[in-house]
Design a protein around this nucleic acid. Sequence first.
DNA 1: TCTGGGGTCCTAGGACCC
DNA 2: TCTGGGGTCCTAGGACCC
Length: 420
Amino acid sequence: VIAHFDINNCYCSIEAVFNPKLRGLPCVVLSNNDGCVVARSPEAKALGIAMGEPWHLIADKHRAANVQALSSNYALYGDMSRRVMDTARTFAERMEIYSIDEAFLDYSPGANIDKVGRELRATIRRHTGLTVSVGIAPTKVLAKASNRVSKKDPSRGGVFEWPDGGAGEQILCKMKPSDVWGIAGRLEARVAKLGIEDALALSTMPDELARRVLTITGHRIVMELRGIPCLELEEVASAKKSIVCSRSFGRSIESEQELVEAVAAYAESVSSKLRTQKLTAERIQVFASTNPFKPDEEQFHDSVGYTFDTPTNLSFDLIGIATRAAKSLYRPGVRYKRAGVMVFGLGTENATQLSFDSMPAPELERKRRLLAAVDSLNRELGRGTVRSGSVAADPAWKMRAKRLSPRYTTQLSDLPIAFA
DNA sequence: TCTGGGGTCCTAGGACCC
DNA sequence: TCTGGGGTCCTAGGACCC
């Protein structure tokens, strides 16, 4: 038996925990650059504000209606999420954290899961001030659907258990295919072509057809809708397979310099993430594109990749390659609106260090010099100030590092980024 | 005139999720 | 003028190998 829960209106609710004046007011949380609406309070939903709506198109109207618009604060949301998950973990033997605001819990058959669901809800509210909805069912897809019912029908008290037989079919037949977890735009269009207009019809479509039209992932969803588990509960978060840092620019840029600077900053961010997680990357991919919301402007998107001889997480390597890649992506006259750096082929840091011996001589020499410089800096500045070739982000430290070790800066001066 | 079969790896693109 | 960011998985096709 699977229980699924999520935090209601997650980001807005968290903001309201720390700023009680927001309670009862229409409130939205905005994405980076204050671009899109990514969370809405119930009052904001009631005003008809849609998920993902570009804020600049509707800001004037809603400011007049006293809608509170907040920039997002992911550090805060992450911290609250951890508290919620820590509480939930005590309620089941196995748990899968699915996203910042949702998790699946696994119960053995026979547990009084409805009661457990209500206790879970009350405890999370007491510990964090946040409200969760709970859905209970034999499969993950149906647990998500149950959760949907518990939200839509206030008389359920925030907990709903999927009923057997005809009652379950009644619910499915009122759901659109796109209300099902895993079925969205294109897939919905494909099933619509087959005359499938609700989740019940989706659940009864022939297996062979599902496999062909929806691919193997879609077929699994169909099976889960029938109550046959196909999706495992993934208790331990599987190792990450890629890390990306990408941004839309506040305005379009046209100079090579600006593109290179942006990409270099993203590369530094990616390499810092790699080091924090004690990972290395085998391959880097840099991409850039124009503004897709300006169809009358010439569109451009391209990416350039590079495979390292030896997996790395050094700013040194990533920024160097990313800078070169940005230059090769650059076309005069193109109005760039977005760029990013992605790495994959991830491995553990130790493995790389072990493989230093197999590195080609020039690269090994470069890296030895860098590591020696890092060591000597750390002796001067204190242990841990400098890691894997990156100086702590505080500009004051950078200045001090330069003063204390001119050798270090000289070594890096022939690189595209003078001090990284 | 006739031109195999089995496999891996890589890349691009499409689709989904929160 | 202003439209997010970070992920996963699947499929098809090409290059290459023996």
